[in-house]
Write a protein that binds this DNA or RNA. Structure first.
Lengths: 208, 208, 208, 208
DNA sequence: CATGAATGAGTCTTCATTCAT
DNA sequence: GATGAATGAAGACTCATTCAT
C-alpha cells in the first residue's frame, strides 16, 4: 500500500457500535453538505456539524478531508459493484437477452435508489482522486460481466472483456442524464426499456 | 441573460490580434494546469503564470476564475456540438447504419483529437456551473440527431428525441473510459467498430 | 434586522472570559492601528497582529472587517450616548444655565477621556456605514436632550427637538478641533467655559 | 515645501484652456465617482473614465491618486475660505449681530450650494491627509474672523482668536447634520435663523 | 476521548502606477 | 501627447488541521 493510499484509509475500524453509527452519520452528512452547498462549501467543519460531532472527532475517524470523501465514494461504488456482481452470477448460462435485462434492472435500481447521493458522488469523484477508486470498482464489475458473457447459452464473444467494458460504460451516460435532470420528457418512463433494447441489441450483434 | 450568466462571459472581445493570442494562451494554460495539478490547484495565479502573463491581465479578459474555466469548457463543447450537427446534416435521409457509423466517427474524432483537453473538461464541468452549459450543448446535439433520425430511409422512430438522447449519451461512457486510460488492452483499437455495432444495433432495433 | 445590519454584528457572544479579553484586545488593536497607520493601512492582518492573534481568529469574532470597525465605533458612541442621557435625566427641571453647563461637562468628559480613540473613530465613521450608526446614537441623545429642555424651569422652547439637535451638534466642531490638535494656544484651557457660554446663550435666547 | 507636499501638487499648471477644462472635468468626475461609488470604489480608472480621458492622461495632471483628491478638497475649501474672508472684510466695524448674521448666511450659502460635493469631501478628507489641508484653510478663516471681531462696534473680545475658532467650528456640526440628511423635520427651514441666534447670542455674551 | 478555538498558508480579486505603441 | 494593457503587491477572507483544555 502506498503512502497516498494509506492516507485515504479510515483511521479506526468500526469495532464498536458507536463508531459505526458515527461513520454513517458522517457519510450522510457529507452527502447532504455536498448537495446542499456544493463541493466548494463542503468543509470538514460543516460536515462534522451536520453529523452532530466536532471537527476534532471527525479527524478521529479520517486522517483528512479527502479520505472521508473517498470513503463515501467507495461505499457507494462498492454497493453498485456488489449488486452487479450478484446479478451477473445469477444470470450465468442464460441467453443474452436475459443478461441484458437483468443487468439494466440492477444498474438502474442501485443508481436511482438514492439519486441525490448518486449525483453528489460524481462531484466528489472529480474533486479527489476518484478515478483510481472508480477504476478498481469498474474492474470488478467488468470481470463479473465477462464471466457472465462467456457463459451465455446463445452467443459467443470474441473479446468478452471488451464487450463487457463497452456494455457497462454505455449505461453510464443515459443514467447520468436522468440523474442530472436534463433528460427529455418521458425519458425516465422509458429509460429501462430503452436500455434493455440497447444492451440486448448490442450483445446479440456479437452472437454468431 | 441573467446576472450570473453575465458574470461568466469574457470581459473583452478579442478584436485585436494580441488579445486572441492571449485568450488562446489562457485557454491552454488552464487546461495544462488542470491536468497537471487538478482542479484544486487550478488557481488564477498558476493559470496566469503558465500563460506567461500576470494575474491582473487574466482579470482583464475574464471577470473571475469560473468565467475563464466556463469559457474553456464552452469552447470545447461548442466544437463537439458543431461537429455533431454537421455530421447529422450530412446524413439526412441515409439508412440508420450509415447514420450510426457517421456519428461514431465524428464523435470519436472530436473527443480524441485532443485527449488531454477532453479529460480536463470533465473535471471543470463538475466544479463550476458546467451542468448548465453541458445541457445547452447536449440539447443542440440531440436536436440535430432527432432531425436526422426522422429522415432515416429505412426506419421509423416512435420517440426520436428519446432515442437520440439515449444514443448520444451511450457514447459518452465508453469514450471517457478510453480517455481516462482505464480501458482494457485492445480497447482503443476496437472502440470505433464496437460503438458502430452498438449504435447500429440500437437504431435498427427501432426499425419496423 | 436587515441583511446588511446582520453582517455588521459580531459573530459570537462573549460568553467566555477569554472571548471578552480577545474582543477587547481587538477593539484597542483596531484603534491603535487606525491612529498609527490610518484607515488605508488598517487591515485585518495588521489588526490581528497588533491584537496578538491570527487573522483567522479575528474572523471568528467578526464576519468581516467592517463589522469589527463598526463594533468599535458603536461601543464608543454608545458610551457617549449613555453619558449624555444620564446627564439629561439628572438635569430635569433645572434652569437652562445648569443644563448647558451639565451637558458641556459630560460631553467634554467622555470625548476627551480617551482622545486617541475619539479621533480614530471619526476616521472609521466615514469609511464604513458609520453614518447610520452615528444617526441612531445621535437620535438617542437628541431625544434625551429634548426631554430635558421641555422640563426647563426658566424657559419654554417652541421647537425643542430642533433646538436640541442644534445645541448638540454645535458642540461637535469645537471638540473635534481640539482633538485634531489644530486649536489655537489656550484653546483647551478655555474650551469648557466657552462652550458653556455658547450653549447657555443659545438656550436662553429661546427663553421668553 | 516637503517632499510629501510636493507630491500632492498638480503636475502641470493650467496655462492652456484645454488643461483647465480637463482639470475641471477631473474634479467633478472625482466627486461623482465618490458619491456614486464610495471612496473604496473611487479608483483612478473610474475617475478618468467618467472624465472622458484615459488613466494615463490623468497621471499627466496629477502624480498620484491622492494628489487629485487633495486638489478637489482644496478647491472646495478654498472656495469656502474665500467666501468667509470676503464676508468678514465686508462686516468690519459692524455690530456683532450683523457679523453673526452675515457669517451664517455666507457659510450656509457655500456649503449648501452643492450639497453633494460638500458631503463627498468629508469622505475624502478622512481618507487622505485632509486634516493638514483643512487646518490651513481653517486658519485663514479664523484669522479673517478674528480681524472682524476686534473691529466690532458694540463689543470687546478678550480672546478674539479663540472666540473666532469656537464660533466657526460651532457651525460645522449643524450644517453637516443637514448635509447628511439626518436632521429632524423642519430643521433645514429654520437652520439659518437658529444659527444666527446661536452665533449672535454667543458673540454678545462676550460683549461687556 | 471530545471539543472547538486558534492558526496561517493559500485563494481570489482589485487597483495604483507604468510604459510601449 | 494620449492611450489602455500589463503589472504585481496587497487586501479580505476561508478552511484543513492541530492541540490545549
Amino acid at each position: 500500500m502506498t503512502v497516498t493510499a494509506a492516507l485515504l484509509k479510515p483511521r479506526k475500524s468500526p469495532v464498536q457500535a458507536r463508531s459505526v453509527v458515527t461513520l454513517d452519520a458522517l457519510h450522510s452528512a457529507a452527502i447532504q453538505v455536498l448537495t446542499r452547498e456544493g463541493l466548494g462549501r463542503c468543509t470538514t467543519t460543516r460536515i462534522a456539524a451536520r453529523a452532530g460531532i466536532s471537527v476534532g472527532s471527525l479527524y478521529q475517524y479520517y486522517p483528512n478531508r479527502d479520505s472521508l470523501l473517498a470513503a463515501v465514494l467507495e461505499k457507494h461504488l462498492d454497493g453498485v459493484a456488489r449488486a452487479v456482481e450478484r446479478a451477473c452470477r445469477g444470470h450465468q448460462g442464460k441467453p443474452v437477452a436475459e443478461m441484458a435485462s437483468g443487468l439494466v434492472t440492477v444498474f438502474l435500481d442501485v443508481k436511482l435508489r438514492n439519486p441525490r447521493e448518486s449525483r453528489a458522488l460524481y462531484v466528489i469523484a472529480e474533486g479527489i482522486g476518484g478515478a483510481k477508486l472508480a477504476e478498481r470498482l469498474r474492474t470488478r464489475m467488468v470481470t463479473a460481466m465477462t464471466d457472465m458473457l462467456v457463459s451465455a447459452s446463445d452467443a459467443h464473444f470474441a473479446d468478452p472483456d471488451i464487450t463487457a467494458a463497452i456494455a457497462l460504460s454505455s449505461l453510464v451516460g443515459p443514467v447520468r442524464l436522468l440523474l442530472d435532470g436534463h433528460a427529455p420528457t418521458g425519458f425516465e418512463a422509458s429509460l429501462e426499456k430503452q436500455l434493455v433494447v440497447l444492451l440486448t441489441a448490442f450483445l446479440q450483434a456479437h452472437a454468431n
